[in-house]
């Protein structure tokens, strides 16, 4: 159970990215965050694992206060929270396997990991994770030799290494073409069915209808919608995306 209370983020330059946002995410949910570009989706997801320090408000993860956790506590919390990114954020010059193994750093022996030494179990776990996303044969290639869709699958494998209980996905398919979008989201859906809570920001409404169990709409840092995917009708849509917005469907692209 994740609980966000009165979360506000003001960047040093004065931009108010989140304004008093509160919501709850029960375990096992597939929560989708929608909103225009600049509405605060990335900021919200990064506040949850404290890649960004919130200005005020509280975030509780199973009743542990993330916002006031010490550096070592936050590292222990982070290792249960996987994250995948729009730009995949792989280390391009490293091998696929090394990228996947880096997902295990939070659990690894700090000294051995600094020497680049990994236990056999971790290596096998990494290969299994790659197998699961269907690219075990690419393990020893450099990450930047892979296509976008393959790189995002490496990103998922890296998150799998964390044995995550929560998965944050920041527009995971926005850099991929629509056909690939489903294949990536299906992996997330599969994980979700296995009990991992997912919080995912998305752009295309038809993807929202297909995967979300619940939806939050952000506009200029304010939560303007919370409900089931089916509740997003034309009026709701205009509220979230503005009057002049057209409903864009991934399928129509």
């Amino acid at each position: 159970m994740l609980r966000v209370e009165h979360l506000t983020k003001i960047y040093p330059n004065g931009t108010v990215a989140l304004r008093d946002v509160s919501f709850e995410v029960p375990d096992g949910e597939f929560l989708v965050v929608i909103g225009l570009s600049g509405s605060g989706k990335s900021t919200l997801l990064r506040c949850i694992n404290r890649l960004i320090e919130p200005t005020s408000g509280k975030i509780y993860w199973n009743d542990i206060d993330i916002t006031s956790a010490s550096p070592s506590e936050i590292r222990r919390i982070r290792r249960q929270i996987g994250m995948i990114f729009q730009q995949f954020n792989l280390v391009k010059r490293s091998s696929v396997l090394t990228n996947v193994l880096s997902g295990r750093l939070g659990y690894a022996n700090p000294w051995l990991s600094l020497l680049g030494v990994w236990p056999v179990e971790d290596r096998q776990k990494a290969l299994r994770a790659l197998e699961r996303v269907g690219i075990a044969d690419k393990a020893y290639q450099r990450a930047d030799t892979l296509s976008g869709g393959q790189q995002q699958r490496v990103g998922i494998a890296r998150a799998l290494m964390q044995d995550p209980r929560l998965l944050l996905a920041d527009e995971p398919v926005a850099s991929l073409d629509p056909v690939l979008a489903h294949s990536i989201l299906q992996y997330l859906e599969q994980l979700n069915k296995e009990g991992v809570t997912v919080i995912c920001s998305l752009h295309f409404l038809d993807l929202v209808h297909r995967y979300a169990t619940r939806v939050i709409g952000l506009k200029d840092g304010v939560k303007v919608f919370e409900g089931l995917p089916d509740e997003i009708d034309r009026t709701r849509f205009k509220e979230i995306y503005g009057e002049e917005a057209q409903e864009v469907r991934a399928a129509s692209l």
Binding site: L51, R75, I77, G82, L114
Partner: peptide, 22 residues
Amino acid sequence: DPGPIEAITATGANRVQVILYG
């Protein structure tokens, strides 16, 4: 590229690990 640093920080790695891997 700050992306990989962000990603590796998010796995719960400490600062030295982030520098070495990211």
